[in-house]
Computed example of a mutant assay.
Amino acid sequence: MPRTAEQNQRLKEERRRALLKAAREVFARRGLAATKMTDLAAAAGISYGLVYHYFPDKESVFAALVEEAVRGGIELLASARRRPGTPWEQLHYVCTRLLEGIREEPSIPLILVQAHASESVPAVVEQALDRYSTQFNRHLEELIESGQKAGQIVNVPATELARTFLATVQGLALTQIFPQLRKTPFPSTDTILRLFKP
């Protein structure tokens, strides 16, 4: 019995998600410049030709991953702001979720670091990264400023605190690629946020 259009669409979405998941690992390990479409197809367990049904080139795959990662961060901040509780509790929630994400999927922040640092990132990726990073930073700074107004966060420029927060999270993600550092205790949310206490 042939598949329905709905079943075909569902299968296509499942394969696209599987391809992106596999691509995260490949790009995190090899970087954009060293990765080939054949690497992505092999990691996803699909044929080389089938990859092109979903993306025209590896840059498009990388761009989709960057956009997905930064959009996920924006959604995390937005959901934290909707949660009941103080700005400090909301920041604690964001930090905890980011740390959980690093332990579960360290490739996501590694891809973002590569996207920021690589000279071979195409213009479309740079534009998406700039657009979403600006939104993310603005939301994080607003959360920090709310905490400062409530007397819960140290009175230092919010832009500095946001940068410190992101650098800490990204630095912890980088430690996940070193086997000897993966064995050391991972800092808790309270340890990281101690810097932010007044």
Rank of each mutant, 00 (worst) to 15 (best):
E75R: 14
L65Y: 07
E59H: 14
R81I: 08
R82F: 10
L91W: 03
A80M: 08
H92F: 13
L65A: 08
Q90S: 06
V66C: 08
A80R: 02
C95G: 10
G73M: 10
R82S: 15
T86M: 04
F62D: 01
R82D: 15
P87T: 02
C95Y: 00
E68S: 14
P56W: 09
Q90F: 05
R71M: 13
R81A: 13
A80P: 05
P84A: 13
H92N: 08
A63C: 14
Y93K: 01
A69S: 12
A69G: 08
P56F: 11
P84Q: 12
I74G: 00
V70D: 02
E68F: 05
G72H: 07
E59S: 14
E89P: 08
E89K: 06
A63R: 09
G72R: 03
E75A: 14
A78E: 15
A64C: 08
H92A: 06
W88C: 02
E75C: 04
P84H: 11
R83E: 15
A78N: 13
A80I: 02
A63G: 08
E68I: 03
G85H: 07
G73P: 07
Y93H: 13
D57C: 08
R71S: 12
P87Y: 02
H92E: 13
V66Q: 00
Y93F: 14
A78S: 12
G85D: 08
R81V: 08
R82V: 10
A78M: 12
C95H: 04
L65E: 04
V94M: 00
V66K: 01
D57T: 04
E67P: 03
A64S: 11
S60P: 09
G85K: 11
R83A: 15
V94P: 00
E59I: 06
E89T: 05
R83W: 10
E59K: 12
W88D: 04
V94K: 02
G72W: 02
L65V: 11
W88V: 07
A78D: 13
S79W: 13
R83P: 10
R81T: 11
L76V: 04
C95I: 02
V66P: 01
G73T: 09
E68V: 01
R82G: 15
L76G: 00
P87K: 03
F62V: 06
Y93I: 01
L91F: 03
D57I: 08
F62H: 00
E59T: 13
R83F: 11
G73C: 12
A78R: 15
S60I: 10
L65F: 12
V70A: 06
G72M: 05
E67K: 13
R81N: 11
L76D: 07
E59Q: 12
L65P: 09
S60R: 15
V70K: 11
Y93E: 04
P56G: 09
V61N: 09
P56V: 11
A63T: 15
C95M: 13
Q90L: 06
L77Q: 00
E59P: 09
C95K: 00
L65R: 07
G85I: 06
V61I: 14
Q90E: 06
R83N: 14
E67R: 11
R83Q: 14
L77G: 06
A64E: 10
S79A: 15
A63Q: 10
A78G: 10
L76F: 04
R83C: 11
L76E: 09
L91N: 03
S79E: 15
P56Y: 11
V70P: 01
S60F: 14
E68M: 09
Y93T: 04
P56S: 09
R83T: 12
D57V: 05
